[in-house]
Design a protein around this nucleic acid. Structure first.
Lengths: 258, 258
DNA sequence: CAAATAGTGTCTTTGAGACATTATCAA
DNA sequence: TTGATAATGTCTCAAAGACACTATTTG
């Protein structure tokens, strides 16, 4: 861990410590647009960003004003960055108990004009309905949801453009390779709801095809049909409900079909 | 990113900064034991650990002496943790240009008795032959390779037991779901060599079976046979050599067979 | 020849893919 | 009845799995 080299009194770097440790959060939500009654929703993956104010509440100039940024804040010594993320998220949006995942650390020298500041980045999955009650934060001039496709064109603070790219890469991979998709869905869901979630980040043919996907969902070892449970929220015909079960998903590129 | 709350003068946490930022490295290697001539090697995944000395070269007591630990050290403001890992690895083992991957951050309050120290953890893949020239570091009483199975029984410094568990989880998943296995192999390799690497971390039936795996390797989109290239290092019969090619591997648990 | 690994032949079974068909219900 | 989604029937084709067998080379 620490080598003696740094502990020796003559080592100049001994007392160089970071100027700050922050936790940033890429808050993703999927908005469902009900096109009509008795039909599966059109879903779209969106990222929540905050527009940095010109000045803080004391009247001092803010840093990187007017740019869009990920919510976040400084971590205190009494908490982990994950706990800080959870706390910030609650302060920002008023919601707690959200799925959070670490996906990277940003420590490039010069990434933050304020000094040597290390950012621990997470993504969060927030079901749309829980975002309704969100409230503005003190330095957040605006809070807005952006479809993940057209994020490139906005002016982003610090190195957040890069962080956001990685966040999208990670959540996309996790949605396809783990069962996090359940964080976007109700406890019980139909095949077309799961399909709509997956289609926000993939255009895979066998996921696009209704019949194929409806058949496939029955064979997945980590999803089970809930006998006798049906809903009419996606069609006039009562539709089978499914739930995720705790089953370890082991996969390998050396055994899968290609 | 930073909220005004922390910038206000009355906020006590404003000046609380970490006492250090370290980079730790889980150095993995696969040792090949040639059981006999003209046979595939028996391979085993091992992790390199350092035994912390009782005192440093100045005669001061060292922290966590006698315990096994991951190599690593403090990150300076002029570098990223990844660069620090690369530098430390070179100082420690004399080797450069090694595959490194970030897999986690450790920032639990109290994890390090010296203060609020954040560890950015990476794993490294070092081919066995490059470890031969490794040399002892100044505070490393001993350097040793441990098979990943029997790491639990050793006394580990700080929270390294936990970090190591995560490192093994991550490298295992990456070996099966990405093409990092190539980091353990020569440029050109036989099906049985790749098989031996994979069998260090899985007991999957279709990887264990020679015929099945020999057939499967020909169909993998990210591996190609190198026409006309054969070797006799794994058998008396000249054997086809393969190489990894740059092909994007997209997989999904919703489309794979289960 | 014996032994060991590499590689093929072939049969069975499973599931993916495609396409058509049926079921159910609201408007 | 129309229109929409859900669900099934069925056929084809590709690949997985299993097992036997052949090929090549060294000692």
């Amino acid at each position: 861990m620490k080598s003696n080299k740094e502990e020796k009194p003559y080592d100049v770097s001994r007392y160089r410590t970071p100027d700050g440790y922050t936790s940033d959060i890429a808050v993703f939500t999927i908005t469902s647009e009900k096109t009509k009654a008795y039909a599966p929703p059109k879903m779209e993956l969106k990222l929540m960003l905050i527009k940095r104010a010109q000045q803080d509440t004391e009247g001092n100039l803010n840093i990187e004003p007017g740019k869009w940024a990920l919510p976040g804040g400084f971590v205190t010594p009494e908490e982990t960055a994950m706990e800080a993320a959870s706390r910030e998220l609650e302060e920002e949006t008023g919601i707690a108990g959200i799925h959070l995942k670490h996906f990277g650390v940003y420590d490039e020298p010069g990434r933050d004009p304020r000094g040597w500041i290390i950012s621990n980045a997470h993504y969060a999955i927030v079901p749309e309905h829980r975002l309704f009650e969100r409230k503005a934060h003190d330095d957040a001039a605006e809070v807005e949801l952006f479809p993940v496709q057209d994020l490139e064109q906005h002016l982003l603070a610090f190195d957040h453009a890069s962080i956001i790219r990685h966040a999208i890469t990670h959540i996309t991979r996790d949605l396809l390779q783990t069962t996090v998709a359940k964080q976007f869905l109700p406890e019980l869901f139909t095949y077309s709801e799961l399909q709509a979630v997956l289609l926000t980040i993939t255009d895979d043919k066998s996921i696009q095809n209704e019949q194929a996907f409806a058949r496939k969902i029955k064979t997945l070892p980590f999803i089970e049909a809930v006998e006798g449970q049906k809903t009419q929220r996606t069609s006039k015909l009562p539709t089978q409900l499914y739930r995720f079960i705790d089953a370890e998903v082991k996969q390998s590129i050396y055994t899968a079909r290609h």
